[in-house]
Simulated scan of single mutants.
Amino acid sequence: MLLNIVHETRYSFTQGVTHGLQRLRLRPKSSHGQTVVEWTTQLEGAVHEAEYDDQNRNRVELVSIEPGAREVVVTCRGTVHTADNNGIVGDQAGHMPLWCFLRPTPLTRAGLKVRALVARVDADRTDRLTYLHKLSHAVREAIDYVPGVTDVNTSAEQALAVGRGVCQDHAHVFISAGRLVDIPTRYVGGYLKMDGQIEQEAGHGWAEAYVPDLGWVGFDVSNAISPDERYVRVATGCDYSEAAPVTGIATGAGESRLSVHVSVEESQAGQQQQAQDQPPGEQQQSQGG
Protein backbone atom coordinates (compact mmCIF):
# COMPACT_ATOMS: atom_id res chain seq x y z
CA MET A 1 0.00 0.00 0.00
CA LEU A 2 1.27 3.49 -0.85
CA LEU A 3 0.30 5.97 1.86
CA ASN A 4 0.41 9.77 1.73
CA ILE A 5 0.87 11.41 5.14
CA VAL A 6 0.63 15.02 6.34
CA HIS A 7 1.39 15.84 9.98
CA GLU A 8 1.15 19.45 11.19
CA THR A 9 2.08 20.46 14.75
CA ARG A 10 1.35 24.06 15.73
CA TYR A 11 2.47 25.75 18.98
CA SER A 12 1.04 29.18 19.83
CA PHE A 13 2.54 31.30 22.65
CA THR A 14 1.08 34.30 24.49
CA GLN A 15 4.53 35.95 24.54
CA GLY A 16 7.53 35.98 22.26
CA VAL A 17 9.90 33.09 22.97
CA THR A 18 13.25 34.05 24.50
CA HIS A 19 14.89 30.68 23.93
CA GLY A 20 13.53 27.33 22.81
CA LEU A 21 14.64 23.93 21.54
CA GLN A 22 12.52 21.11 20.15
CA ARG A 23 13.38 17.51 19.42
CA LEU A 24 11.41 16.01 16.54
CA ARG A 25 10.84 12.30 15.99
CA LEU A 26 8.63 12.61 12.95
CA ARG A 27 10.54 10.93 10.14
CA PRO A 28 9.59 7.28 9.49
CA LYS A 29 12.40 4.81 8.97
CA SER A 30 12.66 2.29 6.16
CA SER A 31 12.54 -1.12 7.81
CA HIS A 32 10.99 -4.56 7.48
CA GLY A 33 7.56 -3.96 5.96
CA GLN A 34 7.89 -0.32 4.96
CA THR A 35 9.95 1.88 2.64
CA VAL A 36 10.03 5.67 2.87
CA VAL A 37 9.61 6.95 -0.70
CA GLU A 38 9.91 10.64 0.20
CA TRP A 39 9.68 12.79 3.32
CA THR A 40 10.06 16.53 3.96
CA THR A 41 9.91 18.68 7.09
CA GLN A 42 8.99 22.38 6.87
CA LEU A 43 9.50 24.80 9.75
CA GLU A 44 7.88 28.15 10.56
CA GLY A 45 9.21 30.11 13.52
CA ALA A 46 12.10 27.65 13.99
CA VAL A 47 15.35 26.66 12.29
CA HIS A 48 17.04 23.30 11.79
CA GLU A 49 20.14 22.76 13.96
CA ALA A 50 21.15 19.09 13.80
CA GLU A 51 20.01 15.59 12.86
CA TYR A 52 21.01 12.23 14.35
CA ASP A 53 19.89 8.69 15.21
CA ASP A 54 19.13 8.11 18.90
CA GLN A 55 19.67 4.96 20.95
CA ASN A 56 16.54 3.37 19.46
CA ARG A 57 17.62 4.20 15.89
CA ASN A 58 14.90 6.83 15.65
CA ARG A 59 15.72 9.68 13.28
CA VAL A 60 15.78 12.84 15.41
CA GLU A 61 15.81 16.44 14.19
CA LEU A 62 16.87 19.16 16.63
CA VAL A 63 15.41 22.61 15.92
CA SER A 64 15.69 25.95 17.73
CA ILE A 65 12.82 28.42 18.06
CA GLU A 66 13.52 31.83 16.56
CA PRO A 67 13.81 34.52 19.29
CA GLY A 68 10.58 36.48 19.58
CA ALA A 69 8.47 33.87 17.80
CA ARG A 70 4.91 33.54 19.06
CA GLU A 71 4.05 30.58 16.86
CA VAL A 72 5.95 27.51 15.70
CA VAL A 73 4.60 25.27 12.95
CA VAL A 74 6.19 21.94 12.01
CA THR A 75 4.72 20.37 8.87
CA CYS A 76 5.79 16.94 7.64
CA ARG A 77 4.73 15.48 4.30
CA GLY A 78 5.69 12.17 2.84
CA THR A 79 4.88 8.94 1.07
CA VAL A 80 5.56 5.49 2.50
CA HIS A 81 5.19 2.12 0.80
CA THR A 82 3.95 -0.53 3.24
CA ALA A 83 3.39 -4.30 3.22
CA ASP A 84 1.46 -6.71 5.44
CA ASN A 85 3.95 -8.89 7.35
CA ASN A 86 1.48 -10.05 10.04
CA GLY A 87 2.98 -7.55 12.45
CA ILE A 88 6.48 -9.06 12.24
CA VAL A 89 9.22 -6.43 12.21
CA GLY A 90 12.24 -8.70 12.69
CA ASP A 91 15.34 -8.69 14.85
CA GLN A 92 16.59 -5.88 17.06
CA ALA A 93 18.24 -3.20 14.90
CA GLY A 94 18.94 -0.35 17.32
CA HIS A 95 21.80 0.21 19.74
CA MET A 96 19.83 -1.03 22.76
CA PRO A 97 20.31 -4.60 24.02
CA LEU A 98 17.12 -6.58 24.56
CA TRP A 99 17.46 -6.51 28.34
CA CYS A 100 16.83 -2.75 28.24
CA PHE A 101 13.27 -3.50 27.20
CA LEU A 102 12.71 -5.47 30.41
CA ARG A 103 13.38 -2.49 32.67
CA PRO A 104 10.41 -0.69 34.26
CA THR A 105 9.99 3.01 33.51
CA PRO A 106 7.83 5.56 35.35
CA LEU A 107 5.07 5.04 32.77
CA THR A 108 5.29 1.23 32.72
CA ARG A 109 6.24 0.22 36.27
CA ALA A 110 4.02 -2.70 37.31
CA GLY A 111 1.99 -2.35 40.48
CA LEU A 112 -0.83 -4.33 42.04
CA LYS A 113 -3.25 -3.74 39.17
CA VAL A 114 -0.85 -4.85 36.42
CA ARG A 115 0.09 -7.90 38.50
CA ALA A 116 -3.59 -8.76 38.95
CA LEU A 117 -4.18 -8.46 35.20
CA VAL A 118 -1.27 -10.79 34.44
CA ALA A 119 -2.62 -13.32 36.93
CA ARG A 120 -5.92 -13.40 35.01
CA VAL A 121 -4.33 -14.31 31.67
CA ASP A 122 -5.02 -18.01 31.21
CA ALA A 123 -2.29 -19.04 28.75
CA ASP A 124 0.96 -20.98 28.65
CA ARG A 125 3.80 -18.46 28.82
CA THR A 126 6.16 -20.85 27.03
CA ASP A 127 4.00 -20.40 23.92
CA ARG A 128 4.97 -16.76 23.76
CA LEU A 129 2.99 -15.68 20.68
CA THR A 130 -0.28 -17.19 21.91
CA TYR A 131 0.29 -15.73 25.36
CA LEU A 132 0.86 -12.25 23.93
CA HIS A 133 -2.35 -12.35 21.91
CA LYS A 134 -4.31 -13.34 25.02
CA LEU A 135 -2.55 -10.61 27.01
CA SER A 136 -3.56 -8.07 24.36
CA HIS A 137 -7.18 -9.19 24.67
CA ALA A 138 -7.02 -8.93 28.47
CA VAL A 139 -5.67 -5.37 28.32
CA ARG A 140 -8.42 -4.31 25.89
CA GLU A 141 -11.04 -5.81 28.18
CA ALA A 142 -9.61 -3.95 31.19
CA ILE A 143 -9.47 -0.48 29.58
CA ASP A 144 -12.32 0.95 27.53
CA TYR A 145 -11.26 3.21 24.67
CA VAL A 146 -12.39 6.66 25.86
CA PRO A 147 -10.44 9.78 24.75
CA GLY A 148 -9.91 12.73 27.07
CA VAL A 149 -9.61 10.81 30.35
CA THR A 150 -5.82 10.30 30.39
CA ASP A 151 -2.81 12.22 29.06
CA VAL A 152 0.82 11.58 28.08
CA ASN A 153 1.85 11.41 31.75
CA THR A 154 -0.66 8.70 32.72
CA SER A 155 1.06 5.50 33.83
CA ALA A 156 -0.08 1.94 33.17
CA GLU A 157 -1.22 1.57 36.78
CA GLN A 158 -3.22 4.80 36.63
CA ALA A 159 -4.90 3.79 33.36
CA LEU A 160 -5.97 0.46 34.87
CA ALA A 161 -7.28 2.28 37.94
CA VAL A 162 -9.70 4.41 35.90
CA GLY A 163 -10.43 1.64 33.39
CA ARG A 164 -10.50 4.07 30.46
CA GLY A 165 -7.90 5.46 28.10
CA VAL A 166 -6.54 5.57 24.57
CA CYS A 167 -4.00 3.72 22.43
CA GLN A 168 -1.06 4.99 24.49
CA ASP A 169 -2.57 3.57 27.68
CA HIS A 170 -3.32 0.21 26.07
CA ALA A 171 0.28 0.03 24.89
CA HIS A 172 1.76 0.97 28.27
CA VAL A 173 -0.29 -1.64 30.15
CA PHE A 174 0.66 -4.31 27.59
CA ILE A 175 4.34 -3.30 27.88
CA SER A 176 4.22 -3.31 31.68
CA ALA A 177 2.58 -6.75 31.80
CA GLY A 178 4.98 -8.21 29.25
CA ARG A 179 8.03 -7.08 31.19
CA LEU A 180 6.57 -8.50 34.36
CA VAL A 181 6.75 -11.98 32.80
CA ASP A 182 10.23 -11.38 31.31
CA ILE A 183 9.16 -10.59 27.74
CA PRO A 184 11.00 -7.63 26.14
CA THR A 185 8.40 -5.06 25.07
CA ARG A 186 8.53 -1.54 23.63
CA TYR A 187 6.35 1.36 22.56
CA VAL A 188 5.78 2.31 18.90
CA GLY A 189 4.57 5.67 17.66
CA GLY A 190 3.38 6.09 14.10
CA TYR A 191 0.43 6.46 11.77
CA LEU A 192 -2.63 4.37 10.94
CA LYS A 193 -4.75 4.66 7.81
CA MET A 194 -8.26 4.53 9.20
CA ASP A 195 -11.09 3.19 7.07
CA GLY A 196 -13.40 5.94 5.88
CA GLN A 197 -11.46 8.66 7.73
CA ILE A 198 -8.53 10.66 6.38
CA GLU A 199 -8.31 13.50 8.91
CA GLN A 200 -7.13 12.60 12.42
CA GLU A 201 -6.40 14.52 15.62
CA ALA A 202 -3.14 12.70 16.37
CA GLY A 203 -0.88 9.86 15.36
CA HIS A 204 -1.29 6.32 16.65
CA GLY A 205 0.52 4.20 19.22
CA TRP A 206 0.90 0.47 19.76
CA ALA A 207 3.32 -2.04 21.29
CA GLU A 208 5.86 -4.59 20.11
CA ALA A 209 7.08 -7.69 21.91
CA TYR A 210 10.14 -9.81 21.19
CA VAL A 211 9.36 -13.38 20.16
CA PRO A 212 12.21 -15.90 19.62
CA ASP A 213 12.66 -16.91 15.95
CA LEU A 214 10.43 -14.02 14.82
CA GLY A 215 11.96 -10.95 16.43
CA TRP A 216 9.79 -7.94 17.22
CA VAL A 217 6.05 -8.47 16.65
CA GLY A 218 3.48 -5.67 16.79
CA PHE A 219 0.27 -5.67 18.86
CA ASP A 220 -2.30 -2.90 18.42
CA VAL A 221 -4.35 -3.49 21.55
CA SER A 222 -6.82 -0.70 20.77
CA ASN A 223 -7.85 -2.31 17.47
CA ALA A 224 -7.29 -5.93 18.57
CA ILE A 225 -4.99 -6.75 15.62
CA SER A 226 -1.35 -6.98 14.68
CA PRO A 227 -0.29 -4.06 12.45
CA ASP A 228 -0.78 -4.58 8.71
CA GLU A 229 -0.13 -2.49 5.59
CA ARG A 230 -2.22 0.39 6.98
CA TYR A 231 0.41 1.13 9.64
CA VAL A 232 3.55 3.28 9.40
CA ARG A 233 6.16 2.96 12.15
CA VAL A 234 7.94 6.22 13.04
CA ALA A 235 9.65 5.87 16.43
CA THR A 236 10.16 3.24 19.14
CA GLY A 237 11.22 3.40 22.78
CA CYS A 238 10.89 1.90 26.22
CA ASP A 239 7.70 3.96 26.59
CA TYR A 240 5.95 6.93 24.99
CA SER A 241 8.48 9.45 26.33
CA GLU A 242 11.24 7.93 24.14
CA ALA A 243 9.06 7.88 21.03
CA ALA A 244 7.15 11.16 21.45
CA PRO A 245 6.87 13.04 18.13
CA VAL A 246 7.77 16.44 19.59
CA THR A 247 9.45 17.30 22.90
CA GLY A 248 11.26 20.41 24.01
CA ILE A 249 11.48 23.56 26.10
CA ALA A 250 10.61 27.22 25.55
CA THR A 251 11.47 30.05 27.93
CA GLY A 252 9.77 33.44 28.07
CA ALA A 253 6.83 32.11 26.06
CA GLY A 254 4.06 32.59 28.61
CA GLU A 255 1.17 30.19 28.14
CA SER A 256 1.20 27.85 25.16
CA ARG A 257 -1.44 26.11 23.08
CA LEU A 258 -0.90 23.00 20.97
CA SER A 259 -2.89 21.86 17.95
CA VAL A 260 -2.18 18.81 15.81
CA HIS A 261 -3.52 17.87 12.39
CA VAL A 262 -2.81 14.49 10.78
CA SER A 263 -4.06 13.04 7.52
CA VAL A 264 -3.31 9.54 6.21
CA GLU A 265 -4.68 8.29 2.91
CA GLU A 266 -3.82 5.80 0.21
CA SER A 267 -2.32 7.44 -2.85
CA GLN A 268 -4.20 7.25 -6.15
CA ALA A 269 -1.20 5.49 -7.70
CA GLY A 270 -1.39 2.84 -4.98
CA GLN A 271 -5.13 2.37 -5.48
CA GLN A 272 -4.70 1.95 -9.23
CA GLN A 273 -1.93 -0.61 -8.77
CA GLN A 274 -4.00 -2.52 -6.22
CA ALA A 275 -6.94 -2.63 -8.64
CA GLN A 276 -4.67 -4.01 -11.38
CA ASP A 277 -3.31 -6.71 -9.05
CA GLN A 278 -6.75 -7.74 -7.80
CA PRO A 279 -8.19 -10.90 -9.44
CA PRO A 280 -11.38 -10.39 -11.48
CA GLY A 281 -14.60 -10.75 -9.55
CA GLU A 282 -13.02 -10.06 -6.15
CA GLN A 283 -13.63 -6.99 -4.02
CA GLN A 284 -11.35 -5.81 -1.29
CA GLN A 285 -12.94 -5.77 2.13
CA SER A 286 -12.39 -2.76 4.35
CA GLN A 287 -11.53 -3.42 7.97
CA GLY A 288 -12.60 -1.15 10.81
CA GLY A 289 -10.01 0.55 12.98
Rank of each mutant, 00 (worst) to 15 (best):
L2C: 02
L3W: 09
N4W: 04
N4L: 09
T9E: 07
R10N: 12
R10Q: 13
F13R: 04
T14W: 01
T14A: 10
Q15M: 11
Q15K: 15
V17H: 03
H19W: 02
L21M: 12
P28T: 04
K29R: 15
K29Q: 15
S30Q: 08
T35Y: 11
E38V: 14
T40F: 10
T41L: 09
Q42T: 15
E44K: 02
E44A: 05
G45C: 07
E51K: 07
E51R: 10
R57K: 12
R57Y: 12
R59P: 08
R59K: 10
S64A: 15
R70T: 10
R70D: 00
T75L: 14
C76R: 04
V80Q: 07
N85F: 14
N86H: 14
N86R: 14
G87N: 06
Q92F: 02
Q92A: 10
G94M: 05
G94Y: 05
M96Q: 14
M96E: 14
P97H: 06
L98G: 07
R103K: 13
V118S: 04
R120E: 06
D122R: 04
D122N: 08
A123H: 03
D124N: 12
T126D: 13
Y131A: 01
L132E: 01
S136V: 02
S136H: 03
A142V: 03
D144L: 12
G148R: 11
V149L: 03
T150S: 06
N153D: 13
S155H: 03
S155M: 02
A156V: 05
E157P: 08
E157I: 01
A159Q: 01
L160E: 01
G165W: 04
H170R: 05
V173C: 02
F174A: 03
R186E: 02
K193S: 13
D195C: 10
D195F: 05
E208G: 04
D213N: 12
F219R: 03
S222W: 07
S222F: 08
S222I: 05
D228A: 03
R230M: 07
Y231N: 05
V232K: 04
C238Y: 00
D239Q: 08
D239M: 06
E242F: 09
E242C: 05
E242Y: 09
P245T: 04
A250N: 07
T251A: 09
G252N: 10
A253K: 01
E255T: 15
S259A: 13
V262I: 10
V264C: 06
V264M: 05
E265I: 06
E266I: 09
Q273C: 07
Q274E: 14
Q278S: 14
P280V: 13
P280I: 11
G281T: 09
S286Y: 11
G288E: 14
G288S: 14
G289Q: 11
